[in-house]
Amino acid sequence: MKFYRATAATMADANIVITGVPDESRSHALRKGTDTAPDTLRAASGESEFFVRDGKTIPTVPMMGTLEGKRMFDAGNIKREQVYEHTLGIIKAGKIPVAIGGDHSLTTDVLAAASKTLGKKLSLLYFDAHPDFVSSARNYYGSVMTDSQDHIDFGKSMTIGTRAAEPEEIENARKAGLQIVTPIDIVEMGVHRVAEMILAKTAGSKTYISIDLDCVDPASAPGVSVPSPGGLTTADLLFLLTKVMAAGNVAGFDIVELSPDYDLNNMTAYLAARILTECIASLKI
């Protein structure tokens, strides 16, 4: 099984490499099942991204950007301990890595590999209900920011959709100079203004984008590990993501924390597949 849009036969033929990481060994969530997410997302893309009529398969067209010139290779699934070296190889080959989790801790290894290969810290756009900036515990999905601090330029980074932070996370973000944008901020300022803020914040930097599906309101994305009411709308999320992708300088991105056992009629899986397609279509390559 592979992502429906992945048509490159080999990694050498591709400019975008998609890899699944079916692992939740560093999750503390009570709701389990993200280890089945990569193949669930792939299956959703094969159910929702085309129509069949008169014996012909007709792919749907992305809302923004284009898939022309986007040569995608689905590298299949790898083990958690392979993420760092695998990502190093992709970036050294001049291709854009896309990781599908699994739990959010995989972002730590992707950031480390990207920072090492590029020789500098990265801007990070972290779409998540939680800032994952716990420092009283380490090496799990809630300490991504702390574990990745040597690879992140916090002054040029943001968390977006944050609404369920622990007190120490707010304090750690304040000390690091990490800007937090809540869903209420987006309502108050408007999504266009927030997009301008994001582009200004990351200007001139290589940017990595991490998308925890719990950034979306659980009314639209119930199939996540740690749902939190009051999240982003799907349209606002897609608008912000496509604007960032189109601006260029994207080092890679990931989609994590899909929990299929808690999904409703596959709506979160279909959303994840749509996010993946729209992000790739809007990527400036």
Rank of each mutant, 00 (worst) to 15 (best):
V194M: 14
E166G: 00
A6Y: 14
V52P: 09
M11I: 02
M11E: 10
L88Q: 13
K206C: 00
R174C: 00
G161C: 04
V17D: 09
A246L: 01
I152S: 11
A29D: 13
I275R: 06
I160A: 07
V61T: 15
G204I: 03
R53E: 10
R193K: 14
N172M: 00
E47A: 15
I209E: 14
I170F: 06
G69L: 04
K120F: 00
P22S: 04
A137S: 14
P227V: 03
L124I: 06
P131K: 08
R80L: 10
N266W: 09
L283C: 11
D212I: 01
F3E: 02
D54Q: 12
H130D: 04
E47G: 10
N172Y: 09
E47F: 00
S25M: 05
K79R: 04
S123G: 15
M145K: 12
V110C: 13
S105C: 02
I209V: 15
P183M: 01
F50W: 13
G223S: 10
M72V: 15
A43I: 00
D54C: 03
R42I: 03
M145H: 11
Q179E: 15
D147K: 01
A37D: 00
T162Y: 04
P62S: 11
T57C: 01
S123K: 13
F127I: 10
D103S: 07
E49S: 12
A221G: 05
E168Q: 08
A246V: 01
S48R: 12
K201W: 05
V250F: 06
S143Y: 03
T268L: 04
I18M: 14
G20H: 06
G65P: 11
A173R: 09
K120V: 03
D128T: 03
A281T: 08
T108Y: 06
F127D: 10
M267N: 15
T34W: 01
S148E: 05
T233K: 10
A114N: 14
V216P: 05
D217L: 06
S123P: 07
A37W: 07
L67C: 00
N15G: 01
S225M: 03
G230A: 03
A29Y: 12
R274Y: 06
A247S: 14
T19E: 01
M145W: 11
T19A: 11
G76I: 05
P218F: 00
M267D: 06
P260M: 02
G142A: 07
F51Q: 12
C215K: 03
A273L: 02
D236R: 07
H130A: 02
